[in-house]
Each structure stands twice: as structure tokens, then as C-alpha cells.
């Protein structure tokens, strides 16, 4: 059921210890790419993809990585760990994203969501035993995402062309800069040395993937061209996260909605 969630979560979710190294390169590339002006290519949103050949080969690499390494590990993990436990692990890692989320809520001028983020963190870290139990959601404080790529989008920075990074997956220059900036607010460094963090990142990746086993399979099967399906989904999801404040998403999203009013297709 959660097809597109799965695609986006899986491929937008950062992956392993390679991450740190990748983001440094990413900033340099993004800075270079950001200077080229954006041209509206055609009517299909998200199809700005001048580096498609490179992106497709990276996409294939990531698919291979998933098929031969990440998915098998996730299947094993799923066999050992019952789903509620997987959800708890997921909650734990999500809770650690608090600083970047809070700061970005504020940078976006989203005071109420910032309060929700703060309250969730306090409640879940204490009563939720270090973040493993998400009481916040039960209390009417739903989770929402906020990151610096989204903040830049709110400030009017265009996404730029689609990029697929090895291991990282779908991105664009704006969101790549965002990930690099948010990494400065990553508090996990407080909790251990490099080896521990790398291990934690592996656990996080495998756990996330294990929650999405069926969804990713469906997404692959449901598409005629999985690359384009993921590209479109990534673009669209990011645009909507930027346009609508987390829960009060409203009206003017017609630009990225399919063109429902296209005269030629009317009955």
C-alpha cells in the first residue's frame, strides 16, 4: 500500500558510513551545479534531468547494492526482529533528528511545528525511554519532517536538476547542500566513536529497509520505468513538503498536481 512512501523513504534515506565522505563531494558539485540557470524543460514536473545517463548508472548501482547487500540483510533482520521492535528502533533513530528538525522549523518560521518538534523530543526522550517509544504521536503531537533542503526551498531556492548519488540515492543540488548543512546538527557524534557510529548507521539502514520490504517490491513491479517513477516521486514529494507546512497543506498545489484541467483530455 505504501508504495511511493517506500520508494522515497528508501532512496532518499541516507545509507552507510560512506555518507560523510559523499556529502563533502556533494557540496562542491552542488555549488558548481547551482550556478547553471534553470530552464523549464517541458510540461512534466521533475523531468529536469540533464545528467540522466550518469544518474541511470548510479541508480543501477544503488539497485544492485540493494538487491545483493541491503535487502538480504533486511530480510534477515526482519526474520529475527518482530515488527514492533523494528518500529521502536526506527523511533529511536528518528528522535535523534531533533536538532536539525527544530532549527529548520524555526528557519522556516514555523513556530507551532517547532513547538511540536520540541515537545516530541522531550516527551519521547524521557517517557519514551530514549526515543524508542513514540508517545508524542499518541498525545496528538504528530511527527513531521523538516530539513535544510526544505528550508532553502521555502526561501525560494529552486531544486536544480535531478541527481542520483551512489549509496545516498535521489537528490538535487539544493537538497544535497541541505543534507550537508543538516549534518552539522547531527548529535549522534556525541554518543560514540566512528566505528560505533558506522555500525549504528548500518543498523539504521537495514532496519529502515526491513520496514519497507513489501512496499519496495510493489513499487518496482508497479512501474514501467522504475527510474522515472522514483525521479518523479522524489521531485513531487519534495515540492509538496516545501509548499505545505507539515499538516496544514493547502490549496495552491495545482502547479505540481497533474494538469487536471487539460482541455484536450476532457471527455
Amino acid at each position: 500500500m505504501a508504495t511511493w512512501l517506500a520508494i522515497v523513504a528508501c532512496f532518499a534515506a541516507p545509507a552507510t558510513a560512506l555518507a560523510q565522505a559523499t556529502s563533502a563531494d556533494a557540496v562542491a558539485t552542488a555549488a558548481a551545479a547551482g550556478s547553471t540557470s534553470e530552464t523549464a524543460s517541458d510540461a512534466i514536473p521533475g523531468s529536469n534531468d540533464p545528467w540522466e545517463p550518469f544518474n541511470r548508472s548510479m541508480f543501477d548501482f544503488n539497485e544492485g547494492l540493494d538487491r545483493w547487500v541491503i535487502k538480504p540483510a533486511a530480510v534477515g533482520w526482519d526474520t529475527v526482529l518482530p515488527r514492533p521492535a523494528q518500529v521502536s528502533v526506527d523511533n529511536f533513530f528518528d528522535n535523534l533528528k531533533f536538532p536539525a528538525r527544530f532549527v529548520n522549523d524555526l528557519l522556516q518560521g514555523e513556530i507551532d511545528p517547532a513547538a511540536v518538534t520540541l515537545c516530541r523530543f522531550v516527551v519521547n526522550t524521557t517517557a519514551g525511554l530514549g526515543g524508542f517509544i513514540d508517545w508524542g504521536t499518541d498525545m496528538g503531537l504528530p511527527k513531521h519532517s523538516a530539513d535544510f533542503g526544505q528550508t532553502l526551498g521555502r526561501w525560494g531556492v529552486p531544486p536544480g536538476p535531478y541527481i542520483v548519488w551512489p549509496v545516498f540515492g535521489s537528490s538535487n543540488p539544493r537538497d544535497t547542500v541541505g543534507i550537508a548543512a543538516d549534518s552539522y546538527l547531527d548529535i549522534s557524534a556525541l554518543f560514540g566513536d566512528i566505528a560505533t557510529l558506522a555500525a549504528a548507521r548500518v543498523v539504521q539502514t537495514v532496519n529502515t529497509r526491513s520496514l519497507l520490504l513489501d512496499e519496495v517490491d510493489t513499487a518496482r513491479e508497479a512501474s514501467l520505468d522504475f527510474y522515472i517513477a522514483v525521479r518523479t516521486a522524489y521531485f513531487e514529494r519534495r515540492q509538496r513538503l516545501i509548499q505545505g507546512s507539515s499538516d496544514t497543506e493547502r490549496g495552491n498545489d495545482d502547479l505540481y498536481f497533474p494538469d487536471y484541467s487539460d482541455q484536450e483530455v476532457l471527455p
Binding site: S47, D225, I228
Partner: peptide
């Protein structure tokens, strides 16, 4: 689903083909 439209997604996939 999660801010991704089924119609829009199929549209972009079929457009090229």
C-alpha cells in the same frame, strides 16, 4: 500517497515511451 500522485507518476513514465 505520501504526497506522490499516482496519475502524475504514471504520466511521467508513459510520456517518454
Amino acid at each position: 500517497i505520501e504526497r506522490v500522485s499516482l496519475v502524475a507518476n504514471f504520466r511521467s513514465q508513459l510520456q517518454d515511451v
